[in-house]
């Protein structure tokens, strides 16, 4: 008599061992969005950055962490040349976006900042309606010719910033009537409406409550499908939660950069270890 066939399909036994997580690729193995080469920066006589060289992969979230004054925000603002708004600053070395120097003589700084959008710690909506806040960039840059195109762009941007459902019925009321978390997402929508390539975020959730923070973090997670995101944060758990790669800055230098999962479990440098376990100083 024939044996009864097995009811369940047999689980195939793998013939090759999987690649252990520790051997999976680091930031340099992915397509590069931004690269810094031996970049130094001074505020007057004070050197704030000390020969930073790193690679920021395309369409990933990269977090910069480090104690206050470590240079992480200065470096972030060097990527879209925001530091130049401060008098008496100078730099050495180079930062490239998709292989082209952002510090080339002919670079149109306004155009550069459109390609590299920025979101700040304190939300700073214009004292205008929600609609006009988002439509501001596209109008100035002539991104939408017709009213219908502009409407669509505003809606898409608000949807991308996970704000549409909360404001769709009051687009023409003042943005200042929104909650802190909503204002921050509005600023993200405003940055997205300019159709940037890269999004820089400087402590985007540090002024928000845990629920608003969680919304921003979820948003960041979703946005990396389309954008290269660089986030500066004081909150290491936040960096661990949202980022794919983390760079640790200390006293103007880059101490270590690597995959977030590895950096927070098995950092290579003692200074990183000391900082993330709170044993500094």
């Amino acid at each position: 008599m024939d044996a009864q066939p097995l009811q369940r399909p047999r689980t195939p036994i793998p013939t090759a061992a999987p690649v252990p997580p520790a051997q999976q690729p680091g930031p340099a193995a992915l397509p590069t969005a931004i690269e810094a080469r031996d970049f130094s920066f001074w505020y007057g006589a004070n050197q704030a950055l000390n020969g930073i060289s790193l690679v920021i992969p395309d369409r990933r979230v990269t977090a910069f962490i480090g104690p206050s004054g470590c240079g992480k925000s200065t470096f972030l603002r060097s990527i879209n040349r925001m530091n130049e708004l401060i008098p008496g600053t100078r730099h050495q070395g180079d930062v490239t976006l998709r292989g082209e120097s952002v510090y080339r003589g002919e670079v149109d700084v306004v155009g550069l900042r459109r390609r590299i959008g920025m979101v700040f710690q304190k939300s700073n909506p214009f004292p205008k309606s929600i609609y006009d806040n988002v439509a501001y960039g596209p109008r100035v840059n002539g991104l939408a010719r017709k009213r219908a195109d502009l409407d669509e762009l505003v809606e898409t941007s608000l949807r991308s910033a996970a704000l549409w459902d909360e404001v769709s019925d009051r687009l023409h009321t003042s943005a200042l009537g929104l909650s802190g978390g909503q204002q921050q997402r509005l600023c993200i929508a405003r940055a997205l409406a300019a159709q940037p390539d890269v999004l820089l975020m400087d402590e985007p959730a540090s002024a928000l409550d845990p629920i608003a923070t969680q919304k921003i973090e979820e948003l960041i997670y979703g946005l990396k499908q389309q954008y290269t995101i660089v986030i500066v944060t004081h909150n290491m758990q936040q960096a661990a939660r949202v980022s794919d790669f983390t760079a640790f800055f200390y006293m103007g230098s880059l101490v270590e950069m690597g995959r977030t999962d590895l950096l927070f479990t098995t950092p290579k440098e003692d200074r990183t270890e000391a900082y993330i376990t709170g044993r500094f100083g």
């Binding site: 290491m236 758990q237 661990a240 927070f264 479990t265 098995t266 950092p267 990183t272 270890e273 993330i276 376990t277």
Partner: peptide
Amino acid sequence: QQPMARDLR
């Protein structure tokens, strides 16, 4: 405590 690195290990 949300420990990191060696503390986590």
